[in-house]
Amino acid sequence: MTNKELERQGSLKIVDTAKIMKYGALFVASARLRTLSKWMISVIAASFANPLFYLLSIGVGIGSFVNAHSTNHTIDGVPYLTFLAPALLAMVAIQDGLSEVTLPTLQGFLWEKNFFAMNATPITGKQIALGTFLAAVTRTFFSVLVYFIVIVAFGAVDSGRSWIAIITAMFASSAFAALMMGITAWAKNSDLLLTFVGRFIVMPLFLFSGTFYPLSSMPIFLQWLGWISPLWHSIELGRYFTYGHHLSGTALALHFGYLLAMLVFGLLFSFNEFEKRLSK
C-alpha cells in the first residue's frame, strides 16, 4: 500500500494533523482552563481575598508602624503602602504561576496520568508543556489583574504608567513558572519536590527579595539571594513603573534580560523534559 492510499483512509479523513501541529498547545490550554473553571467561584474569591488580607495586615498594619518610626514617614521616598504594593503584585504573580504549573504537571505525570492520555493523540510533549504553561499564565493574569485593581483602590499607586507593573509581574511569573514546570517534570519524587520548593525556594524568595524593605538594607552576603531571584528583578521593575523608583538604563536592561533568559531557558528545558518523561 502506498503512503497516498494510507493518508486517505479512515481516521485521516477527519483528523487534520497539520491543524493539530499548529494549534495543539491551545487545545491543551483550553482543556486545562475548562477544568479550572469548575472552581471558578473559589478562584475568584481567592484572587480578591489574598490581596485584601495582605494589604490590610502588612501594608496598613506595618505601614503605620514604619511611618511612625521613620524620619520623614517614607521608605524609598514613598509611603510604605506604595513601596509594598508592587512587591505584593509581583509576589502573587510568582506564587500563582508556580502553583498553576506544578499542580497540573504532577497530576499529568503522576496522579491522574492525563498527560499520557493527551500524548496518545497526535499532541506532542512539547505542546502539552506549552499548553499547560499558557493556561497557567492566563489564570495568573486574572489574579494579577484583580490584585492591581485592589491596589489602585487602596490608593497605593501614583503614576499613570503603573499598569506596566502588571506586565513586568507577569513576565517574571512566566519565566519562573517555565523553569519550575521543567523541574517538576524532571523530578522523580513529587512530595519531596513540593516540600523542597516551598521551604527552600518560595520562602527565601519571599524573604530575601526586597519585598518588605529595600534589598540594599540587607548585608551584602545575603543580597545575592535577591540577585538570582526573579521576584527581586520583578519588584525592581514594578517599583520603577508604579512610583518611579530609580533605575539606570543598564539596570533596566539587566532586569529584563535576566527574566527573558530564564523564560527562554525554562521553556526549552520544559519541552525537553516533557518529551523525555512521556517517552520513558
Binding site: S11, V15, T35, E112, K113, F116, A117, P122, I123, T124
Partner: peptide
C-alpha cells in the same frame, strides 16, 4: 512520525487515565 501515526490510532491504556474532574 509519532503524531501522524497517532492520528490513526485509538488507545485504551492498561490504566484508565480519564480526566477525573470532568
Amino acid at each position: 512520525h509519532g503524531p501522524q501515526i497517532r492520528a490513526h490510532l485509538g488507545v485504551v491504556p492498561q490504566q484508565d487515565n480519564l480526566d477525573q474532574a470532568l
